[in-house]
């Protein structure tokens, strides 16, 4: 069983987002970067499945050298090896096309449901199409039994249970597992695990991020007296006209 897990490196969830260079560049100053939370779930579940089936887990990441601490974190969780495709991850299609080039020969490929920075949620489906294999989005459960994977996944307004044989690609949603916390032995071992660096080669870029903006600030809050809370209903009905 060979499993590939795609990870992205994102600003910590507490980050206050700002932009520089006339709102064209995300301001990385003082920002702490982490493994995308959904990708951590993917790594953890991949390790559990690999451990139960005598398999291996390979991590792949498209990014520059500054993301290596996050790749080492995934290795310290227990992954066997990692590949870093050296490029600025300009958009989901670029990332998927780069990953597709090294993604042959795996029984299972996992991504996070989406990255919490660009929120595309696209890499799973893009990889599925590029590799011509099934893609299964937002899975909350993955089990493996003699050649078949079974999944629970979120659908609009409910859940679905699926079965599919590998190779396939799936994206991890919350509830899949509890993210594994690296122990000291894992951290030490990760230092010497193989991390291969490959240069990017996709040139036909599908999208360019041109600029960014922040949501408009809210005006000051109108407080309603708690004793007279029913007044809120009146306001929502007759002033805001939303209910």
């Amino acid at each position: 069983m060979k499993i590939l897990v795609c990870i992205s490196v994102v600003p910590d969830t507490t980050t206050k987002i700002t932009f520089t260079d006339n709102d064209t560049t995300f301001n990385k100053a003082g920002v702490q970067f982490i493994v995308n939370p959904y990708d951590e779930l993917a790594v953890t579940r991949a390790l559990e499945i690999a451990e139960a089936n005598n398999g291996t887990v390979t991590i792949v990441h498209v990014g520059e050298a500054d993301s290596e601490p996050s790749i080492r974190k995934a290795l310290s969780m227990g992954a066997n090896e990692a590949i870093r495709i050296n490029a600025i991850p300009v958009d989901a299609q670029f990332v998927a096309e780069e990953i597709a080039k090294i993604a042959q020969g795996y029984d299972l490929i996992l991504t996070g449901r989406e990255s919490i920075d660009y929120n595309g949620g696209a890499v799973c489906g893009l990889l599925g199409a590029l590799l011509n294999i099934p893609s299964i989005n937002v899975v909350t459960k993955i089990d493996y039994n003699s050649g078949n994977f079974t999944f629970d996944r979120d659908i609009d307004g409910g859940k679905e249970t699926l079965t599919c044989a590998g190779p396939l690609v799936a994206s991890a949603q919350k509830d899949l597992c509890e993210p594994r916390i690296p122990n000291m032995r894992g951290i030490m071992a990760a230092r010497t695990k193989p991390l291969q660096i490959i240069e990017a080669s996709v040139s036909n870029q599908a999208a360019n991020y041109q600029s960014y903006s922040l949501p408009a600030a809210k005006g000051s809050v109108k407080l309603i007296d708690a004793e007279n809370a029913g007044e809120l209903i009146n306001i929502l009905k007759n002033e805001v006209k939303v209910i």
């Binding site: 920075d117 041109q210 949501p215």
Partner: peptide, 10 residues
């Protein structure tokens, strides 16, 4: 983008 913290023009 950034989970509702910002918008991007692409």
């Amino acid at each position: 983008v950034f989970s509702g913290k910002a918008f991007a023009f692409v």
